[in-house]
Design a protein around this nucleic acid. Structure first.
Lengths: 179, 179
DNA sequence: TCGGTCATGTAATTTGTTACATGATTTA
DNA sequence: TAAATCATGTAACAAATTACATGACCGA
């Protein structure tokens, strides 16, 4: 069983929770995420879904009664197995190391800025991180609503956003110390 | 001034801190990062550096005395300006939203697993997250060593890794509650 | 002298992006 | 009835991955 990519896993998971659903619905779900890591454009989702179908992980059918020709996608038994094993990759150190944060990435190169710019960087980054935290917090479904995985995932996103805000406050303070 | 990509920004920043340096040294630096978000393979770095040179952001020279034909790269004035404006994008909400975590991504689809698997997921993810935290902690340079940006960036990575471990402990606890 | 690391690159392929193109349905 | 949203897709392009290929230098 060939390993699937990160985006393929995500799309398979979304289809699984929404099935039967249109490709468009998958895109909307992806677009609703606070993270903009994937563009979720039609140009990525439609070919990806065709790929999953070729692999036998999803199946699609067009309701003949539907004049719009909507294509409804569902996960196959094989697809569910692939989804489960993708999720279970979480124990792999290589998977746990797949993290990224555009704000943190930029902080590494702070020394390329002069002191005044450094301070402005930290202030602007903190403000943007606070705005993101607000969005990430709103993304957490109220208790007893939505499934448990979605709630825990969104909660994790909020915690990460909080940790980033705390970190940037510390960055700002440490830059102020030095004048 | 056309915007540069995330990897281009990172490579420009690394060249800036190491200059003059070989493409190989840039790759090693990238490879040393706890995050495996980029593979830092020759196939990505060499063409990327050529691209930066075409854009006039770096310049390379081959020491005629060096029999190995090592190519040393440096950042140009234009390149420094591009690096600074890339770093300063931190104030843009779209940039602050560029975050990713492969463990968290998988957690969203926990409901595709049966209760026993869910628990094994949380245990395995926690273990992997703890191992990653250890690596991320080791990546923080000792005080008074390395530049301030590198230290703050690595510290941010460690904080994020800590927050993830705390989150997964909570996930595990909440799955245990339900039996 | 042998293996590891330093060092540079290319080729084929995959994947994702932006932009374009079309049309049905719903809502104000 | 006009605008927004639902819905599907393609085309051109950009970027990154894996795998391959080569050779110099250094230390045991």
């Amino acid at each position: 069983m060939a390993a699937i990519t990160e985006l393929e896993g995500v799309v398979l998971g979304i289809v699984d929770s929404l099935q039967p659903c249109t490709a468009y619905a998958v895109r909307k779900q992806l677009l609703a995420s606070p993270s903009t890591h994937w563009s979720a454009s039609a140009g990525s989702i439609y070919p990806l879904l065709s790929r999953l179908e070729e692999m036998g992980l999803v199946s699609t059918r067009v309701d003949p009664a539907d004049r719009r020709g909507r294509r409804l996608t569902s996960v196959t038994r094989k697809g569910r197995a692939a989804l489960r094993s993708w999720i279970m990759q979480a124990g792999d150190p290589q998977v746990a190391a797949r993290v990224f944060d555009a704000l943190r990435t930029r902080a590494f190169f702070l020394d390329a800025l002069d002191p005044g710019e450094q301070k402005r960087f930290a202030e602007a980054a903190l403000e943007a991180a606070e705005a993101f935290l607000s969005v990430a917090g709103d993304y957490v479904p109220p208790p007893e609503e939505g499934d448990i995985g979605w709630r825990l995932g969104a909660l994790g996103g909020m915690y990460a956003a909080e940790a980033r805000v705390r970190w940037l406050r510390e960055v700002l303070a440490s830059l102020d110390d030095e004048d």
